[in-house]
Nucleic acid binder design. Structure first.
Lengths: 199, 199
DNA sequence: AGCATGTATTTTACTTGTAAAACACCATCG
DNA sequence: CGATGGTGTTTTACAAGTAAAATACATGCT
C-alpha cells in the first residue's frame, strides 16, 4: 500500500498490434477477457483503422487497473481516517525506521514539497507525527512518528495487505508472479531512462 | 491514450510472497530489475518480517507505472493545450462517433458528472465541442465535436500513440503482449466483481 | 389535472494539489 | 566581515475535483 497519491484514468491507448506474436491469456485461463479497454480499443480501430493501437492495450489497462485498485484499496485506509497520500507519508517514516526531512519525505512519497508541508501540518496537529529542528542547519526539520502514529500504521498495514491479497486473488498465484515480474522490468527501465524521451 | 484522469502513487503494498512459484523475469531477460518498489518492499520486510508483502509487488508497481507513464504520456497532450481528462472526453466523442449526453460522457470517461460539466464548459468555450438540447426531454443535452475538435483529436492521436509506442519499447514485443494479456485478465475480473469485496 | 417521485444536469462549498514566489538560513569568496 | 548564491521549507494564488444540495424536467399514479 501506499505509494504516493494517485488517480488513474479511464480507457486509452494503443492496441497490442504493435507488439508481436502472442495474443491474450497469460498463463492458465483460456478465454480472452473482455474488459473496458478492449471495447475502447475496438472503437478506435473502427474509426481509425490505420492506427497502431498497440500501446493502448498496455497503458490503458495499467491506468484503469490503478484507478480501480486504488478505489478499492483506499477503503481500509479511510476507515482509519487517512487518505492514501497521508498513509504513504506515515509509511515512509515507519519503513525507513528513522527521521526524515520534508525533502526526503517528498522524494520518498513522490510528491511535491508543498504537498508534503501541508500533509505534515495536518498529521502533526493530529498527533501522529513530531517535528524536531536540526541543530546545525536551522533550515531543515526532522520528522518522526509519534507512538500513536506508529501504532496506527502498524494497525492498518495488516488489514491493508490482507485486503489487497483478496483483491488480487482474482489472478492465480503464477499470474501474479508473472505480472509482478513484467511490471518490475517495465518499471525498472522506465525509472532508469525517464527523461531521455521528450516527445 | 487516454483514459480518464489519473495520478497514481509511489510505492506500496505487498510482496509476491503470497503468490507462488515463479520469480521475476517475464520473458526474455535474465536479470531481476531493481525498481523503487522492490526497495520499498525490502524496507517493509525488514521492519515487519512476518508480513505478507505479496500484493505490494503487483499493486505498488501498477500504481507507480501509471504515475510514470502518465507524466510522460501527457507531454504530447500538453503541447496541444489539453489535459488528459479533457482529451479523454474529446476522445470519447470521437471514437463513439455519435453525440453523447453528459451522463454518458461521465460513464465513458469514468469521472463524476460535476467534473464533466466543468470540462464541457471549458471545451465548449474553446469551440471544440457543441451542445444541443434534446427535443423530447429538455433535461438532457447532447454533445458533439466541432470540426475543430475532431481535427484536434485526429491530429493528436497519432503523436500520442507513437509516443506511447516509444515509451513501451523498453519492453520486448512479447513482453508487451504478455503484460497486456495479464492486465486484461486482471481488469476483466476486477470490473466484473468490483463491489463484492468490502474489506 | 395534480402531486409525489425519480432522473439529468448544474451549482455550491470545500478539499487538495501545484507552480512560482517568498523566506530563512548556510556557505563561500573577496 | 559582508555580499552573493544556493538550498530547505513554507506561503500564496490558483486550478480542478468531489459530495451534496439545488434546479429543472419528466413520469406515473390517483
Amino acid at each position: 500500500m501506499t505509494a504516493t497519491s494517485g488517480r488513474p484514468a479511464a480507457a486509452s491507448d494503443a492496441g497490442r498490434g504493435a507488439g508481436g506474436g502472442l495474443d491474450d491469456e497469460g498463463v492458465g485461463s483460456g478465454a480472452v477477457m473482455d474488459d473496458t479497454v478492449a471495447a475502447v480499443v475496438r472503437q478506435w480501430r473502427s474509426v481509425h483503422p490505420a492506427l497502431d493501437t498497440g500501446p493502448m492495450e498496455v497503458i490503458g489497462r495499467i491506468n484503469r487497473c490503478a484507478a480501480l485498485l486504488q478505489q478499492a484499496e483506499d477503503a481500509p485506509l479511510r476507515r482509519a481516517g487517512l487518505s492514501r497520500p497521508e498513509f504513504d507519508l506515515l509509511g515512509a517514516l515507519r519503513r525507513t525506521g528513522h527521521e526524515l526531512t520534508p525533502s526526503e519525505l517528498a522524494k520518498e512519497t513522490f510528491s511535491s514539497g508543498a504537498a508534503v508541508t501541508k500533509r505534515l501540518k495536518q498529521l502533526t496537529e493530529r498527533g501522529l507525527v513530531e517535528r524536531r529542528g536540526d541543530a546545525r542547519d536551522r533550515r531543515v526539520a526532522h520528522l518522526r512518528l509519534t507512538d500513536a502514529g506508529r501504532d496506527l500504521v502498524d494497525g492498518i498495514l495488516p488489514e491493508q495487505l490482507a485486503y489487497e491479497t483478496a483483491v488480487l486473488s482474482v489472478l492465480a498465484p503464477e499470474g501474479q508472479g508473472e505480472l509482478a515480474g513484467l511490471l518490475a522490468e517495465l518499471l525498472g527501465r522506465l525509472e532508469g531512462r525517464m527523461g531521455a524521451l521528450r516527445a
